[in-house]
Design a protein around this nucleic acid. Sequence first.
RNA 1: GUGGUCGUAGCUCAGUUGGUUAGAGCACCUGGUUGUGGUCCAGGAUGUCGCGGGUUCGAAUCCCGUCGAUCACCCCA
Length: 390
Amino acid sequence: MIEQVKGTQNIVDENSTKYLYIRDQFHKSFINYGYSYTQTPHIEYTELFEKSIGVNSEIVSKQMYQFDDKGGRSLVLRPEGTSSIVRYHSQFNKEQTKHYAYFGQMFRYENPQKNRYREFTQGGIEILGQIDEYSDFQVISDSIRFLKNLDLEFTLEINTIGSLEDRNAYIDNLHKYLTLNKDKLSDESLEKLNNNTLRILDSNNKTDFDVIRDAPEILEYINEDSILKFNLLKSLLNKNKIAYRENTKLVRGLDYYNDLTFEFITKDGLVLGGGGRYDRLSEILGLGTFNGVGVAFGIERIMNTIGTVSADPTIYLIGSNINKITEYALFLDDKNINYFKPPRISKLNAQFKQAKNLNARYVINTDEDTIKDLVNNTSVDFDIEVLIEN
RNA sequence: GUGGUCGUAGCUCAGUUGGUUAGAGCACCUGGUUGUGGUCCAGGAUGUCGCGGGUUCGAAUCCCGUCGAUCACCCCA
């Protein structure tokens, strides 16, 4: 037997119903609101992510599916979506300011567990070009519409991490502080001390709590302009009655963020999605000087959090005579009514069972020209009006 | 990358200190029954016991490796 590749999934049955439902809500929440759906390649040059996400991040240093193709190009299966959208924008829309939406598979070489797969799906939006606090605000408020359409409960957490310069100054001081206290840090945090200092603040390890609590706060290092922008956003959120929680420890995993960072978190602490501002990304990539703000959602995480999604009631066609069953199919096609049918002409008994298992509402028995309502358990002579009404 | 648990029919699982032809329920198929039909009855098909090696007269059962699942750490969506 050939097993499937570790960390990949077959999305089937109830999960596929959920998946398609979420994709549909994604469409309705973003694409119908002016975000242009943009599908970029699944493979990119390694360089793109090394420069954007940062070589020190775990995503780039350990988790990329990197390979050389037969032409000797160093390629990766994309680990995230933003960098590709930024690349696209610089190629074709450099001077413009635009809304983008993307939805697709991402790949990271990690050990799989609940809500984490090697091949997974992210749906996200970005605004690129000349942007302002209204751009930040709409990314957040449009995200909330999406999550609310899905009936999800969540908390919005926000933070500002200042400019890249502020952050570097802060990291210097944090590094000094942590080095002084390094004997109180956990082993995991010690590993990060020199190359990923900021991430230590995110530690869930109890050993680190005391040290983190007394650590210097990033707020003290942030320039006035960034503070001003952050306050502007908060007042916009307040005016629009959007609840949020400030979390000064909210640091995101990708190097390219500046100023605003935010996450949508369930009460169990699961991050459904997150994002922020990345004004220098295009510059870091050498692709231009435009700014950006965006968010990405973990589609599997949403699938695992929402309740069951009921499939639409269906009409099921049964019969033992091929000619009659195809005749009915043609008739229904003509009326634009969709229907399910048995995969082959099996025992009528079995066809009934299948209709029941697939939660059919009506069974059309083409042998007898009747319609049976499986919910009320009543049977009537075939009448197209019965189907049109429902 | 680290650790725990697990891997027997399509699915859920049983399989007694290693011992003869590896089982059950559900699902599936056939025939019949039922014509407020999805019920019921009878019969049937289906397994490299994840894969590879080892120990043994003999391994689904013990040992090693490997692949996969799951959960946690790490990391992140």
